[in-house]
């Protein structure tokens, strides 16, 4: 180590990035930290409160419920989107015009703005005029997402699956097409079944992209706001009030800046912790 020349001038090269990150991430985050330990009654008058808001948030039933809903939603969404995405990627063609057609079709949902997705599903699922809502009711299902919690949940989940499964498909497809043909030929000669090929070749080779897919889908679905906000507004009651909807209600609806800031930090730490645990756990065998 001592042999290496120390060139501290290189730090100047990373300076622009440091400044950029400081202004768009660190400084806003610090204001949140600042709010989270103070109380204000307006007029820019602040009183130091220590960790009081953190204690309050962590012990509040409202937070527990929102957190529970959030984990349930993320869990359901991951359980559907990851296997479904892999299945679609496996079924997609490997060559010919079909590849481009599939890729374009798959990318479409990803290109639609999130609030438009919410608005689309809002109208699509309306029981009296929406195609989905009206059809379901005509088929004899009692479906009304503005009144029934189960209908609301099913709609929010369906919307997320529709919106984001493509991302998993595209990642998994990229992973699949990167496997050299030799593997499949060797497997045929070894007499491997389709399941064995999936279990011992495709799945292990997709491990890295699937890890990324799961991480991205975990983080995004855990932070979901716009689509359910436009679709259900968190209702009926509080049944689809996920963490970020609750947070916005607290911060902008009730103007409880201190507890909201404390909740933001807890929220952020949960995402960080889960992502880190997941990544460390899945990658521990890689060298």
């Amino acid at each position: 180590m001592s042999q290496k020349a120390q060139n501290n001038k290189a730090w100047w090269l990373v300076m622009p990035v440091v400044i950029l990150v400081a202004f768009n991430a660190v400084i806003p985050l610090m204001t949140v930290v600042n709010y989270s330990v103070q109380e204000t009654f307006g007029d820019n008058v602040f009183f130091y409160e220590g960790l009081k808001w953190f204690g309050q948030v962590l012990h509040s039933e409202r937070f527990h419920e929102a957190l529970g809903r959030q984990f349930l939603f993320t869990g359901i969404v991951l359980l559907i989107e990851i296997p479904l995405g892999v299945a679609i990627a496996l079924a997609m063609p490997r060559k010919g015009i079909g590849v481009s057609i599939c890729l374009v079709l798959m990318s479409l949902p990803l290109l639609i703005p999130w609030n438009v997705v919410g608005a689309m599903w809002n109208i699509f699922a309306l029981p009296d005029i929406g195609l989905l809502g009206k059809t379901l009711n005509a088929m004899g299902f009692d479906y009304n997402y503005t009144r029934q919690p189960f209908s609301a949940w099913a709609t929010v989940v369906a919307m997320d699956v529709w919106h984001w499964t493509s991302l998993v498909v595209l990642l998994a497809y990229a992973g699949l097409t990167a496997i050299p043909e030799d593997y499949f030929q060797a497997a045929r000669i070894d007499g491997a079944s389709a399941w064995s090929v999936f279990r011992y070749i495709q799945l292990p080779k997709m491990k890295r992209v699937l890890t990324i897919a799961i991480l991205l889908r975990f983080m995004d679905s855990f932070m979901i706001y716009t689509e359910p906000f436009v679709l259900t507004g968190g209702g009926p009651g509080n049944t689809t009030t996920f963490l970020s909807i609750d947070l916005v209600k607290m911060a902008l609806g009730q103007f409880d800046l201190g507890p909201a800031a404390a909740m933001s930090i807890i929220y952020f730490l949960i995402i960080l912790l889960v992502s880190w645990l997941f990544y460390t756990f899945t990658m521990r065998n890689e060298n």
Binding site: D182, Q185, A186, I189, Y200, I201, P204, K205
Partner: peptide, 12 residues
């Protein structure tokens, strides 16, 4: 039996 240019092993 066929042995390919790039070694094929089942990683897991």
């Amino acid at each position: 039996a066929q042995v390919f240019q790039f070694p094929v092993v089942y990683d897991t």
